[in-house]
């Protein structure tokens, strides 16, 4: 085998291996949408739909009740108060319920918060249907503002019959716009509504 063909062979092999490298770099990023798709299809991870669910036509299952627990956490020890008005309730699958969360921005600055829901057990996530929720959009708060925010939900009667307790956990993230001197709560509201 002559020198030329050797280096040609090297070029060919190197090219192939480089393609694999680039492909795998891309694959790493492809895992991101893939992860969401898999969570979506399988209903894993307690991911909750951030679009309003439709209650019309939901069947009510009078024969059982499910305990729903509420947890509210503020991320990163920011000075907020964020509390559900009830810790737990018994609900009949298919019936609509509303729970309010008392929320106070304890900072002396205007800011925007995003509240992220999660449901445990994970597989119950897709059966936890919200017709209305403060978590659908970012929530602007003025300095020191105190507000009751509410979520309206029902438990889909198709929920696994072995599930008797569902926990809805909210984590409040302070998006920290309060640090921005140009910050305008109206802009933020606009932004929140277009999300």
């Amino acid at each position: 085998m002559s020198h030329e063909t050797t280096s040609k062979r090297h070029t060919k092999t190197v090219t192939k291996l480089l393609l694999v490298t680039v492909g795998m770099f891309g694959f790493g990023f492809a895992l991101v949408p893939l992860y969401d798709v898999i969570c979506d299809i399988t209903g894993l991870n307690g991911v909750v739909n951030l679009q309003a669910a439709d209650h019309d036509g939901a069947t009510v299952d009078e024969d059982r009740t499910v305990t729903v627990e509420f947890i509210a956490t503020v991320n990163g020890n920011r000075p907020w108060t964020f509390k559900p008005e009830v810790r737990r309730m018994e609900v009949t699958p298919g019936e609509l319920h509303t729970v309010t969360f008392r929320t106070t921005n304890g900072q002396s600055e205007d800011t925007v918060s995003q509240i992220v829901p999660s449901v445990a057990p994970g597989l119950a996530g897709r059966h936890f249907r919200k017709t209305e929720c403060f978590c659908f959009t970012e929530q602007p708060f003025e300095a020191g503002e105190n507000r009751d925010m509410s979520v309206t939900f029902f438990i889909d009667s198709r929920i696994d019959e072995r599930t008797n307790t569902v926990t809805l956990s909210y984590t409040l993230f302070d998006l920290g716009a309060g640090d921005d001197p140009d910050f305008d709560p109206e802009d933020a509201e606009l932004h929140a509504n277009t999300r």
Binding site: L17, V20, T21, V22, M24, F25, G26, F27, G28, F29, L31, V32, N75, Q114, V116, T171, F173, L175
Partner: peptide, 30 residues
């Protein structure tokens, strides 16, 4: 060759989460 690029991707996502406002791993941003 198969997995080092995946690590590179993961740390790149950390970098953009930190400095360029992406939310790959940031629950507040989805």
């Amino acid at each position: 060759i198969a997995v080092m690029p995946v690590l590179a991707g993961a740390v790149t996502m950390l970098l953009t989460d930190q400095y360029f406002g992406t939310s790959f791993f940031n629950a507040a941003g989805g």
